[in-house]
Amino acid sequence: MQRHKLRTAVTLCAAAALAAVAPASTSAGASSPTPDPDPVLVDCFFDPQVRPDDFILACGDGNNRLVDLRWSSWGPAVAEARGVDLVNDCRPYCAVGKFHAYPVTVKLDRPEPWEKDPDQDHYTRMRLVYTDDKPAQADKEETFKLWD
Rank of each mutant, 00 (worst) to 15 (best):
M1F: 14
M1D: 11
H4F: 12
L6E: 10
R7I: 08
T8L: 15
A9T: 13
A9Y: 10
V10Q: 07
V10E: 14
T11L: 13
T11D: 01
C13Q: 00
A14T: 14
A14N: 02
A14F: 13
A15L: 15
A16M: 15
A19G: 14
V21S: 14
P23T: 03
P23R: 04
P23Y: 00
A24H: 05
S25N: 04
S25Y: 14
T26Y: 00
T26S: 13
T26F: 04
S27Y: 01
A28S: 08
G29N: 06
G29C: 02
A30K: 11
S31Q: 06
S31H: 10
S31Y: 04
S31T: 15
S32E: 10
P33N: 12
P33Q: 13
D36T: 14
P39E: 05
P39W: 05
P39F: 01
P39N: 06
V40K: 02
D43M: 04
D43A: 01
D43V: 08
C44K: 07
C44F: 04
F45A: 10
Q49F: 00
Q49D: 08
V50D: 08
V50K: 13
V50M: 09
R51L: 01
P52V: 07
D53A: 15
L57P: 01
L57E: 00
C59G: 12
C59W: 05
D61P: 02
D61G: 00
R65M: 13
V67Q: 09
D68Q: 08
W71R: 10
W71M: 09
S72M: 07
W74Q: 02
W74C: 08
G75V: 08
P76Y: 06
A81C: 10
R82T: 15
G83Q: 04
G83P: 03
V84Y: 01
R91D: 15
R91C: 00
Y93N: 13
C94R: 11
A95V: 10
H100M: 03
H100L: 04
A101L: 03
P103I: 05
V104D: 01
V104I: 09
T105A: 08
V106R: 04
P113H: 03
W114P: 07
E115C: 12
K116T: 13
D117W: 06
P118C: 11
Q120M: 11
D121Q: 15
H122K: 11
H122R: 15
H122A: 14
Y123R: 12
T124V: 06
R125M: 13
R125V: 15
R125L: 12
M126Q: 09
R127A: 12
L128H: 07
V129W: 04
Y130A: 03
T131A: 05
D132Y: 00
K134Y: 02
K134R: 13
P135D: 10
P135W: 01
A136S: 10
A138N: 08
D139T: 03
K140L: 11
K140G: 07
K140P: 05
E141R: 13
T143E: 15
T143Y: 06
T143M: 09
F144E: 00
L146D: 11
W147H: 09
D148W: 02
